[in-house]
């Protein structure tokens, strides 16, 4: 028997879980002897697995149907993923500038060229200024109507979760743009969707349409 009590608890629990669909006395006894300092945690875990059976076996087909629309939980998980990815990449790229690293974070608007940008603006019934605000995450994500996020997702042909995660991430200045200033532009503070609509030089018809998505 390979007794190794220095194994991290997490790995011990994974190994225990992988060994059998439902643990039995023999397995629990074996693991408790191998990892005596983790015996209490293993016992709690074994009990939890058995109690978990009360809500059915692990089976995707028996689970709830996948939500047709993006859920808040998935959106937020994607946002956490993006932020963590950024953090991990930043720590691995010593000396790289923030702007350079930020360009690695997925921005679904990034592949758009000038023509694509205009085309998107037209299909979203807005203008390039407004799309630019979306691209640079200048709009408070909680104020963006889900229907609008869905439309952006459809037009860009990317999952809605990705668009929602992009909006939820930290504001950025898109590195691929030129700027006329003595200083490099900084990410601005966010405005509400309603204010963005009113401040972007949109026509009255466009404003009415976009504000109508709020109701």
């Amino acid at each position: 028997m390979n007794v190794s009590d220095s194994t991290p608890l997490k790995d011990v629990l994974y190994a225990f879980s992988m060994a059998r669909p439902i643990p039995n006395a023999e397995l629990l006894d074996d693991f408790a002897r191998r990892y005596p300092t983790h015996a209490a945690a293993l016992t709690d875990f074994a009990v939890s697995i058995v109690l978990d059976l009360a809500r059915g076996e692990d089976d995707e087909e028996a689970a709830h149907a996948i939500e047709p629309t993006v859920s808040k939980a998935v959106s937020r998980a994607m946002s956490r993923f993006q932020n963590k990815l950024f953090e991990v990449q930043q720590s691995r790229t010593t000396g790289a500038t923030l702007a350079a690293t930020q360009s690695d974070v997925v921005n679904p608007f990034a592949p758009l060229d000038r023509k694509g940008f205009r085309h998107l603006a037209e299909h979203l019934n807005c203008n390039a200024v407004f799309v630019q605000m979306l691209r640079d995450r200048e709009i408070e994500p909680a104020t963006i109507p889900p229907r609008f996020t869905q439309k952006v997702s459809d037009e860009l042909s990317v999952p809605m979760e990705l668009v929602a995660a992009h909006f939820a991430a930290q504001p950025q200045v898109y590195g691929g743009q030129y700027y006329k200033s003595m200083e490099k532009p900084r990410a601005s503070t966010r405005v509400s969707f309603e204010d963005a609509v009113k401040q972007s030089g949109l026509t009255e018809e466009q404003q009415t349409y976009l504000l109508g998505l709020l109701s």
Binding site: E60, I66, M160
Partner: peptide, 10 residues
Amino acid sequence: PVLLRRCESI
């Protein structure tokens, strides 16, 4: 996101 949605249903 697709994986997360499948996990969410579980």
